[in-house]
């Protein structure tokens, strides 16, 4: 009984977080440290604990991230997640890690072969919004926080959410004569 009510409370708290618009929030004062970008490491395997993105469950922050993705010209190289000059962000391949702190560091530090460093150019809060959006592109944050609107390039035709790999829907099937 206690467990059930705790679950209800927890889900309520989550539901509130989804809609909360935190305009005047103090950004985390320290940036994530000791972040590993690769699973390869000397000595014994140690899995560092992942930092939770502050906006992973917040739908408003995800859409703000989506706006900033366009404003700061991320789309110039990554298109709307489909990739171009830069790697795609919608797939499950992550060169430098998919956890929030990995993506944060990728944006702040820059990466070889073209990803510039945005250190000092984007306020911390907005970087975390971008992190939440980038993670939503490959369905890494809660379903509830992801936008249900088709503003951008979709993973497959007829998709109603930014990504929903569980239920692939093919709205258009090429005729058999055109199939290899």
């Amino acid at each position: 009984m206690v467990g059930a009510s705790a679950l209800v409370l927890l889900s309520l708290a989550n539901a509130c977080d989804r809609e909360q618009r935190r305009f005047r929030e103090n950004p985390p004062s320290t940036s994530p440290s000791n972040v590993r970008v690769s699973a390869l490491q000397p000595g014994t395997m140690v899995d560092t604990a992942h930092v939770a993105g502050p906006y992973d469950n917040n739908a408003w922050a995800v859409t703000e991230g989506q706006r900033l993705f366009g404003w700061y010209n991320c789309s110039g190289c990554h298109a709307n997640g489909g990739g171009g000059m830069g790697p795609p962000l919608m797939d499950d391949k992550w060169i430098y890690g998919s956890s929030p702190e990995n993506i944060y560091n990728t944006i702040v530090q820059g990466r070889p072969n073209g990803m510039p460093s945005f250190a000092g150019k984007i306020p911390t809060q907005q970087i975390w919004m971008l992190v939440a959006y980038v993670r939503s592109l490959s369905a890494l944050n809660t379903t509830g926080a992801r936008s249900s609107r088709q503003d951008h390039m979709m993973m497959y035709p007829g998709s109603t959410s930014l990504q929903d790999p569980a239920k692939p829907v093919q709205s258009f099937k090429p005729p058999a004569s055109e199939m290899p």
Partner: peptide, 16 residues
């Protein structure tokens, strides 16, 4: 420094 107090929700971020 604090545009969000003057116009909450505005697209200008706070600049510390």
């Amino acid at each position: 420094v604090d545009p969000q107090r003057i116009k909450p929700g505005v697209h200008m971020p706070p600049n510390q």
